[in-house]
Simulated assay, not measured.
Amino acid sequence: MENQDKSKNTAIIAYLTIIGAVIAIFMNQEDNKSAFASFHIRQALGLFLSFFLLGYFVGYADSWTVTSAFYLFYFILWIYGFLGAVQGQMRELPVVGAFFQNLFKTL
């Protein structure tokens, strides 16, 4: 039971910020690596990195509709992943979840 709580807390921390994702990676490096925490770390890290990468280019669009749609899309994905971690479910993020799982499979 304690190990389940620890992996759930690690998964939740991963979604807090990019720094939280890095902290969660180090929290999950112990001898008893959790598949649940690893799943959510991959999702959160991919979400944050793609947000910064794509956000850089969206910032040059100079259109409030494009920028607003971009922020809304990522906020919905973040809520979806965060609620999955809180509820203890391993649900991939829509559209990009499978890509993040393959890209960061070594974590």
Rank of each mutant, 00 (worst) to 15 (best):
Q43G: 09
F26P: 15
R42F: 02
Y80I: 00
I76R: 04
T10R: 04
Y15H: 13
I13K: 03
F36L: 00
I18M: 15
T17C: 10
M27Y: 06
S68L: 13
I19A: 07
L77R: 00
G84F: 01
A61P: 15
F75N: 07
K33M: 11
H40Y: 07
H40C: 02
S38E: 11
N9P: 11
F57P: 11
Y74N: 13
T10S: 00
R42T: 01
F36I: 09
E30V: 11
A35P: 11
F51M: 10
Q87V: 01
F82G: 07
T67Q: 08
I79S: 03
F82C: 12
G20V: 09
F52K: 00
R91S: 10
G20Y: 10
A21S: 08
L47F: 00
S50C: 08
D31K: 03
F82S: 02
A14N: 08
I18G: 13
A24V: 10
A21F: 06
F73H: 04
A37M: 08
L47V: 11
K8I: 04
S38D: 12
G81E: 02
L16T: 15
Q29H: 02
I18W: 09
T10P: 03
V58M: 09
F52D: 03
S68E: 09
L53F: 12
I18R: 05
V66D: 09
L77A: 08
Y74K: 12
M27A: 09
V66I: 15
Y74F: 10
D62Y: 14
A61V: 15
L54K: 02
F51S: 04
Q89R: 14
I76W: 04
L83M: 15
A69R: 00
D31V: 10
G59A: 12
I79H: 05
F52Q: 13
F36C: 09
M90G: 03
G55Q: 00
G81Q: 06
L53E: 04
E30M: 11
S50A: 04
S34M: 12
F26T: 15
I18T: 09
A61C: 05
L77V: 05
V86G: 01
N9W: 15
R91T: 01
